[in-house]
Amino acid sequence: MKKLICAADIEALHKEGKKSLLITKQTIITPSAKDLAEEYQLAFQMQAEPEAAINLAPYESISKESLVSLLRQLIAEAGINPVANLPFAYEKHTSGMKIVKGTSVKLNPVQPDNPRLRYQELITPAESHFSAGILEIEESSYYDDTMLESLNYVIAGELQLTIAGTTYTANQGDTIFIPENQAVSWSTPNKVTILCGKLKGVGKQ
């Protein structure tokens, strides 16, 4: 069975005053463990294996659990966060069902000159008959003239919508339906977060 040697193992051996460690061909040593062993002048010594044992299992394979553990160890030691550059974390079934982890969503400015207007698309038109995302407005306004039918839910805050010269107010928990071919101005005196969903359409007719 394969054995994994990591930096913590080398540190423990060093504290015990060990100067060498017996390993076999099945031993996996992480890069950080090798570096630490060299720093502590701890030598790796290859242990002789019985010929019979080698002949019985020359192609012993590493288990899935050990491989996953090794990969996680290598990623952690390299200081790599596999999801750090993703806009959000999610789980997805082969059927297309998708669960977006809400606390992981990173919003990005919609306009370079207006950092107070942020958005992140969660469901793309390629995945569904509609697109959906999180919109955040902070002491700013947004004029939507895409002319697409939409359904929106106020997650938090107060939203003011102006359509054809009339202004309405929507608060946390409110749902807003905007029919096709209608331009709407969105604004807030403080901060508002909205879940926005738009149906596919021609738009801007």
Results as ranks from 00 to 15, higher is better:
176 I>Q: 08
187 S>M: 03
140 S>M: 01
179 P>F: 05
20 S>F: 07
78 A>Y: 02
113 D>L: 02
59 Y>K: 07
8 A>D: 11
64 K>V: 13
2 K>E: 06
110 V>R: 01
143 Y>R: 03
144 D>V: 10
24 T>W: 09
130 F>W: 12
172 Q>N: 11
79 G>D: 01
149 E>M: 14
63 S>M: 04
40 Y>G: 06
25 K>L: 07
198 K>F: 09
184 V>E: 00
12 A>C: 02
152 N>I: 12
4 L>Q: 13
46 M>I: 10
56 L>K: 13
120 Q>Y: 04
135 L>Y: 06
50 P>V: 00
11 E>V: 07
25 K>N: 10
109 P>H: 06
192 V>A: 08
41 Q>M: 07
83 V>D: 14
103 T>C: 07
74 L>Q: 04
172 Q>H: 10
37 A>R: 11
177 F>L: 10
142 Y>M: 03
126 A>F: 01
174 D>T: 09
63 S>H: 06
7 A>I: 11
30 T>S: 15
51 E>H: 15
25 K>R: 06
203 G>Y: 08
73 Q>N: 12
105 V>M: 04
133 G>E: 08
95 S>R: 08
5 I>M: 11
202 V>N: 13
54 I>F: 09
41 Q>T: 11
121 E>W: 01
168 Y>R: 08
99 I>P: 00
37 A>Q: 11
116 R>M: 08
97 M>I: 15
137 I>T: 02
181 N>A: 13
92 K>I: 12
